[in-house]
Simulated assay, not measured.
Amino acid sequence: MGVYHAGSRAVQDRVGVRARADQVGRAVGAVLKPVAAAFLELQPMLVLGAADPVSGAVWASALTGEPGFVRAAGPRRITVAAGPVPADPLARALAGEGVRVGTIALDPRTRRRMRLNGRSRPAAPGLAIEADQVFSNCPKYLQQRERYETVADRAPGETRWGGELTAEQGAFIGAADTFFLTTVHDHGADAGHRGGNPGFVRVASPRELSWRDYPGNSMFLSLGNLATDPRAGLLFLDWTTGRTLHLSGEARTEFGADGDRTVRFTVRQTADIPSALPLRWSAPAYSPANPDPAY
């Protein structure tokens, strides 16, 4: 299939950006260029998203390692020398063959990001992913974190599962400046980034949160997927302690008369893992593109 499916086209047409989307879409390929391969090898973290093969729930998670743990192994393949801990919500999905996955490598130091969507399979000591789509995004709404350190003695705590947000988890989300969003469609999965000043994600109740969809590259891959399949997975990180908060549920987009868009997410499952990641990042410098979170 092409870069866009019917869901993305419907959103592009509704917003009136099909021509712009066609222009941006020319940069999407299936081959890892040398600059992309070099970028991946500098990263200590890779975010992945997929649907659980049993429950169908969509999740997002993160893998970490020393730079070089993600590496190009050919023009259309990357290897990831790490796998999820057994209690990670993506562990079952990533144990399968030919699993449709979306990935995003985000470098807070340079405010660069690239996405690779494809099919994964286990490959000791981690994964191999065959690329279907490879492309970069602009630095809009990325917070800059100038440095990180690896905390050698940090180990994941016990996963706390739930069916709704606790008050503390709601406060954690309300203070976030970044999260990762996984969506799916008939032919694949996509992992994207959302960022803003703290307060850009609003928690309405233990089962519902929302965020404004800020203007971006006009591709509407995430909203296009949601237009055809409402399942979604969210990942929030504590950039200091390594905590990961994973949410799985459904999302819908509300279009305002003035062109504004709000995404409302209904929580179905939560997985909260203390000290899941060994990385400790420096304090953020917020992106100058971030709008006022009040809405």
Rank of each mutant, 00 (worst) to 15 (best):
R14F: 07
V70W: 09
V11G: 10
G163I: 00
Q43C: 01
R145V: 05
R121A: 13
G170V: 00
G29A: 13
R26F: 04
V80R: 13
A57T: 07
A62R: 05
T64E: 14
A171G: 11
G68A: 06
G7I: 06
D190P: 03
G102K: 03
R18A: 11
T110S: 11
Q269M: 06
L165I: 12
G157T: 13
R231C: 03
T270H: 08
V47N: 05
A152R: 15
A283D: 10
H246I: 08
T79N: 01
E41C: 02
N225P: 05
A271Y: 06
T182Q: 15
A232G: 11
L142Q: 09
A271T: 02
V24S: 00
D52I: 14
V47S: 09
Y4G: 09
L32W: 13
V151E: 14
E130C: 01
H185W: 10
G224W: 14
A227K: 04
A189H: 06
S275H: 14
G192F: 11
A204F: 00
P108H: 08
L181G: 02
G224M: 13
A82V: 03
G25F: 01
M219S: 00
R252W: 05
G242Y: 02
L245H: 08
A21K: 10
A95K: 14
S61M: 04
N197W: 00
F265E: 02
L181Y: 03
G2R: 08
E158R: 15
F135L: 04
M1H: 02
Y295V: 00
G29W: 06
Q12W: 12
A51R: 15
A72P: 04
T182M: 10
P293V: 06
